[in-house]
């Protein structure tokens, strides 16, 4: 077919696709490319000196320690509610004695990491997104750049590292508090000693319950950190952009948590 005819045929096909779809598709691929490059840059920058150790410690304090009360309260309620809700069903089957083990496995494997990661995405993801977006629209990031410093390393690497390392710690603490909540839940309608409750919990817990659940929290933390930073670092449209960055950071980080969890479950199921 001659070139002219080919071109006309392509134009006809293109004309049939509404611009809204082509724009959305272009936007999706642009965002995916830009997000990937942003993430690749993280792995390049993390190995290069200078290492922003003091800023990393500060961020670990802000991201980890400051999230502790929220995570602790959520963990306690999570364990308590799960126990209270599960008891009637187990009683129906005469399996009440399984309650501590069942609740523990649910919390350690799935509910603890996912709920804590979602809380973390809401608090930390939005915080990072809003902070960096605000710095971006007030030209503070540009100011760092023109002074010959590397804002990516100072702002992004430290926050992503802190989020990656702090979330597993928070999940571990949340799991422990949730188990205590479960113990309280069991004792609301029964009488089980602290020693017996945790003996039953640890008897049934296996390495494959704890280890994969812990590993995936590093990925949860990384995704919350990198998405928050990406959304903030690339903010536009002034103060409106700050709110938009914070909001989309939470939405995409929460989505990422579920997607990572789904993949992690598939991988873990290969070994169980």
């Amino acid at each position: 077919m001659p070139d002219e005819m080919k071109s006309t045929a392509t134009d006809k096909v293109t004309a049939r696709i509404p611009a809204v779809y082509t724009n959305a598709l272009t936007g999706f691929f642009e965002a995916a490319t830009s997000g990937s490059l942003f993430t690749i840059r993280f792995f390049k920058e993390i190995v290069k000196p200078r290492y922003e150790f003091s800023e990393f410690l500060k961020q670990s304090y802000l991201i980890g320690y400051k999230s502790f009360p929220l995570v602790a309260i959520t963990g306690f309620i999570m364990g308590l509610v799960l126990t209270i809700q599960s008891r009637p069903t187990l009683v129906q089957f005469g399996a009440e004695s399984w309650l501590p083990a069942m609740v523990a496995i649910s919390i350690i494997r799935e509910i603890g990491p996912v709920i804590t990661a979602l809380i973390f995405a809401g608090k930390v993801g939005s915080g990072i997104g809003a902070e960096l977006a605000s710095m971006k629209v007030t030209e503070q990031i540009d100011a760092m750049e023109v002074s010959g410093n590397n804002p990516y390393k100072y702002l992004v690497v430290t926050r992503v590292m802190a989020a990656t390392l702090m979330l597993p710690v928070l999940v571990t603490i949340a799991d422990a508090i949730a188990l205590y909540g479960a113990y309280v839940g069991v004792n609301l309608q029964g009488n089980v000693s602290f020693h017996l409750f945790f003996l039953q919990v640890f008897e049934k817990l296996e390495f494959l319950d704890v280890f994969p659940a812990l590993i995936k929290t590093f990925f949860f933390g990384f995704s919350v950190g990198i998405i928050g930073c990406y959304k903030g670092y690339n903010a536009t449209k002034g103060t409106e952009g700050v709110g938009e960055s914070a909001n989309s950071a939470v939405v995409f980080a929460s989505l990422a948590v579920f997607i990572i969890d789904m993949v992690a479950v598939q991988i873990t199921s290969l070994f169980i």
Binding site: E139, D142, A143
Partner: peptide, 15 residues
């Protein structure tokens, strides 16, 4: 860039 100073319109102080 270390030899070039830039004063931003908003001063861009780190909050």
């Amino acid at each position: 860039r270390k030899k070039v100073g830039f004063l931003f319109q908003s001063a861009a102080l780190y909050d």
